[in-house]
Amino acid sequence: MAATTESVKADAAEAPLLNKRNLFAGLGLYLVFYVWVRWYEGVYGWSAGLDSFAPEFEIYWMNFLYIEIVLEILVASVLWGVIWKTRDRNVMSITPREELRRHFTHWIWLSCYGWALYWGGSYFTEQDGTWHQTIVRDTDFTPSHIIEFYLSYPIYIITGVAAFLYAKTRLPYYQQGLHLMYMVAVIGPFMILPNVGLNEWGHTFWFMEELFVAPLHYGFVFFGWSALAVLGIVNSEVDAIGKLLKKDLV
């Protein structure tokens, strides 16, 4: 097994360096899913999401919450488990071409992470601001929160950790230790989720109105900054890829 790593086999078959189908399928998956989510919000936000004490709220929103949490735990466990379980134990002995191929695969993961972060950090977070203009904050689990905090955030967390695990288990470059900025880029946005605790606690008794710039929200801001750590990842990747291409490129 040591002599015939999966990489060598893949190399022999000459798989494409970038599997475009996986890239577009990955990005497409998020798109289709989130368009469906937006449709669901549009319909059931209005018909069942305005009053958290109504029975239909339990049916269409609380059940959504329970199901998504179970599925997220399941997907995270399986995905992270599989990536770890199928790790390359001879990662330092792969060919440069295989390494390049894996960098491409790694960038499929990162592209998906960026995409998921967009939906979570931008789309669903600002969307929450406008939903609060249509309802009175009567529950922590308002429809926009069920999507924003408990769906879109876990999805980018799952994707980010998967990307990190992929790099750590399959790319020689990341065997030097723990890449500080990679951890910031994944753990920082992850911390936005626990920070929901602060947010909801504050809203329980400080104010019920919707002031987006309230200091109560600064925890989200602080952790949002960690998205900038993608710059460190890019720099590392460019270094690593540069080393692989240097003699042919320059």
Binding site: V43, W46, D51, A54, I135, V136
Partner: peptide, 15 residues
């Protein structure tokens, strides 16, 4: 989703 004409429930005053 955008053209949907709904029946809105109450407003959460009970909370």
């Amino acid at each position: 989703a955008m053209l949907y004409t709904p029946t809105a429930s109450a407003h959460g005053e009970k909370s």
